[in-house]
Design a protein around this nucleic acid. Structure first.
Lengths: 221, 221
DNA sequence: GTCTATAGCTTGATAGAC
DNA sequence: GTCTATCAAGCTATAGAC
């Protein structure tokens, strides 16, 4: 029984370690820039275990991509129900956008570190067509639609189509920001830091909020 | 003489064809997702010509990335000098943002098609750290700084740091939009199309303009 | 400049021992 | 479950003929 427990634990550990190491390497080099050999070497496990646990390199990549989806989507949906839709539009927008972003950032420090590589990976995937259907169409779009409808309800001077454009720009800003390329550090001469997630989130929300409120509406505003 | 001219022309043609085909394939699969063999096969030239003309696969990729930089940066700098900085802020912002975006879009239809693959490639590169220095730090940052300063001059209720955040979000929105992932098509139920560049540019500029004007400033606004 | 031929290495995947 | 050993294919790069 002790023996059995130990084996089960080790099995889960190795599988988990492979996923963690693969996530880190994929987020740095993309799927084609990393070989199974590099992953297993870095994870300190045998080469054949990737095929044993996941079937193929592609399946491993898919598993890395979708293993965090359920929790993140659930958290976003839950938070959305807690928004006070009767508050002033600016405050509602802030709440909605904040609730969408935070599950990707994490609450405490350990969760932020835990999600660091996943954020970079999502940044890569979001500007590529290749895994679009697997990740976004299948998993994240339903949640995004709920958020769009909530934003539309709050900013009803806009058409739904315009809210989609706005939300899409917001997503583009967000995914580029979490890629942490360091570009803003250079452009701002070090005054703005891509590593400062709290500041980034605050600026992104006030930026998007102002855009939503100020975009030309469909009533000749 | 006829013979010499013909050879020169053919030489330039093959080199050019390799660059065009490589740009198309790289923009679809990334550098590690494409082999020299696939490129030369698609270009209908001999395998060894990539190494003959460019030295290595990496050098070919670099050449694909930077061959359009000079013209684009020149056009952006030129257009920036034509902005009427005495106009109302909203109009100045529109002019500045428009001048930045358009060289990446192209004027007539043939130029738009010509730049199609380059846009997708830039979208890939902009969310990756790997070629950040080669492309952005070395080539595009000086131009971006000029645009940031122009925007700061126009929106002087903001700190330069905040203008950097805004411009960075604008860049993120832009690069994600030109990736043409088709996501907005789904989220909008077909009412907004990622293939409609004119509409995208118009929405992006009015979105960013409203954000710049409405962001909380440093005078307690 | 263009081609053939090939060296030398890495890749994903698997068969079979334990 | 984990390991060794290995296959077949694909890869970049180059040397040398024309």
């Amino acid at each position: 029984m002790d023996e059995k427990l130990k084996k089960t634990k080790e099995k889960k550990d190795k599988r988990r370690i492979i996923l963690d190491v693969a996530e880190a390497l994929f987020s740095e080099h993309g799927i084609d820039g990393v070989s199974i050999r590099k992953i297993t070497a870095a994870a300190n496990v045998d080469l054949s275990l990737v095929n044993y646990y996941f079937g193929s390199k592609d399946k491993l990549f898919e598993e890395v991509l979708i293993r965090r989806v359920a929790e993140m989507s659930g958290e976003r949906m839950l938070k959305l129900t807690s928004v006070d839709m009767s508050a002033p539009p600016e405050q509602v927008n802030s709440q909605i956008l904040h609730n969408f972003v935070m599950p990707l950032i994490g609450q405490d420090i350990s969760e932020r570190i835990e999600l660091e590589n996943y954020r970079r990976l999502i940044a890569l995937v979001s500007n590529s067509r290749r895994w679009q259907d697997l990740v976004f169409k299948s998993h994240y779009d339903p949640v995004a639609e709920e958020y769009i409808d909530a934003l539309w309800q709050t900013n009803n001077h806009l058409t739904r189509s315009d809210v989609c454009w706005a939300f899409s720009f917001f997503l583009g800003s967000l995914t580029n920001a979490i890629a942490k390329t360091g570009r803003i550090d250079r452009l701002s001469y070090g005054e703005a830091l891509s590593s400062d997630l709290d500041c980034m989130v605050e600026k992104l929300i006030s930026f998007t909020n102002a855009a939503l409120r100020g975009m030309p509406g469909n009533f000749g505003e």
